[in-house]
Each structure stands twice: as structure tokens, then as C-alpha cells.
Design a protein around this nucleic acid. Structure first.
Length: 221
DNA sequence: ATCCCGAGGG
DNA sequence: CCCTCTGGAT
């Protein structure tokens, strides 16, 4: 995508949503970290439903360790991959207590060293909690970047580097959220809603999907 | 490359 | 039914 088009692309997304925020609910940085870990291959809405009750009881790594593995599993049973996630959250909480004085480190490498925290999760925490200009490439951003031509690559890391290189100020801090929201609600995986997309004219995606038929399809004979 | 694994949507 | 959802560890 041409440089001028990239700027216009972000300008429109920013105009439509001046102050984008995470849809994950949390009351402090530790809870945010836990919510992001739980959000892997799960919807934000599903994570919020489970953490509502959990975060009323647990607000610190110490409290998470005290809660224990089995009780944590009960809380997050409705989320996919809950067994692995519960184990990681307990181990991560223990590591924060042991190595970071119970605080969440404002450091990408230190975050990535925590159990269950990879590059994408670390980038999200750095961006949302600490205001870093990171580009966490999830399933949405990977798809939107490749589909639109904004940032193409075969792996999430390749797309992240392209985004970092291509994204100008003043859009760098919130680029992550604008692209996520665009991917979640408009540039969807299954059936992108190109007919109501505000950047469709800048997009490389050829088969622009038409609006759905208003009339119901006839019942099978 | 494969496993982890549940809810919601089309 | 099948696919998708802010992935990470082996």
C-alpha cells in the first residue's frame, strides 16, 4: 500500500474511533495480564464473563496463588484451553511473586519470560498497560494486514515488522486497537462486510463482498 | 507440525 | 454441522 494511502487508512479508522480501548475488563495491570493470557483463542466477551467473578476475589499475584489451581479452573472452565491457561496463570503468579516483587514488569523480555506469555501477549500488555508503541499481531491483525495490503507477511512476526515500519505518527500508539476492532467488526474472517467498510477504496482485497440480501432465502422444497 | 479446548455464530 | 475467537509451548 502506498504511503499516502496508509496515512489515509489510519486517519479514517482514527476518525471513526478517536479513543480505542481494550474490550477486556480489568481493574489493574495484573488483572489485565491475566485477562490477556486467558484471551488466547477465545473471545473477549467470553473472557470477561469469567473474569467478572474471578477479579472480584483476586487482584494480586499473591491472591491468585492463594486461590489455587482447582479453584481457578472452576472460574475459567467456560473458556477454551482452560486447563493449560489455569496452570500458566498460577505459575505466572508465582513467578511474579518470586522474581518481580509481585509487580508486573514494564519490560517486553521480562514479560515474555513468564509462563504462558509469548510475544503477542507481551506486546499487548506493553501497549495497553505501559503505553508502548507495540504492534501485537493476533489473528485479526494478521488477516487485516495481509488482506488489505497494509502489511503482508507469512508469519505474525513478519507482519509485526512491516506494521512497525509502515505505521506513521500520530497513529502508532493505537494502531493495534484500530486494526483489531476493524478486523473484529468489519473485516471479519468469514464474511468481511466490505459494503460498509470505510477504507474499502484503499484496500487490495479484490472480491469485495456484496451486502446480504434483505429478503429471506426461500425454504427448501 | 501438533496439542491444548469451550462458547458463539453462520 | 463447521469455523472462529486479541496463542503458547513442545
Amino acid at each position: 500500500m502506498k504511503k499516502a494511502d496508509v496515512f489515509e487508512f489510519y486517519r479514517r479508522l482514527a476518525e471513526a474511533n478517536p479513543h480505542p480501548e481494550t474490550e477486556l475488563e480489568s481493574g489493574n495491570v495484573f488483572q489485565l495480564l491475566v485477562a490477556v493470557v486467558l484471551s488466547a483463542q477465545a473471545t473477549d466477551a467470553g473472557v470477561n464473563k469469567a473474569t467478572r467473578a474471578l477479579f472480584a476475589e483476586v487482584g494480586t499475584p499473591e491472591q491468585m496463588v492463594a486461590l489455587g489451581l482447582d479453584a481457578l479452573k472452576q472460574h475459567i472452565r467456560t473458556i477454551g484451553l482452560f486447563n493449560t491457561k489455569a496452570k500458566n496463570v498460577i505459575a505466572l503468579s508465582e513467578a511474579l511473586v518470586a522474581d518481580h516483587d509481585g509487580m508486573v514488569p514494564a519490560d517486553r523480555a521480562a514479560l515474555e519470560a513468564l509462563p504462558g506469555v509469548g510475544r503477542k501477549t507481551a506486546n499487548v500488555v506493553m501497549n495497553v498497560a505501559f503505553g508502548a508503541e507495540t504492534f501485537a499481531v493476533d489473528t485479526h491483525i494478521f488477516r487485516v494486514g495481509n488482506r488489505t495490503g497494509l502489511a503482508r507477511g507469512k508469519t505474525p512476526l513478519a507482519v509485526e515488522r512491516k506494521l512497525d515500519a509502515a505505521t506513521p505518527q500520530p497513529f502508532r500508539l493505537h494502531a493495534h486497537h484500530w486494526l483489531i476492532l476493524h478486523g473484529r467488526y468489519v473485516c471479519k474472517a468469514r464474511r468481511p462486510e466490505c459494503w460498509r467498510c470505510i477504507v474499502a477504496d484503499l484496500c487490495a482485497f479484490k472480491p469485495k463482498t456484496p451486502p446480504p440480501k434483505t429478503a429471506a432465502s426461500p425454504p427448501p422444497a
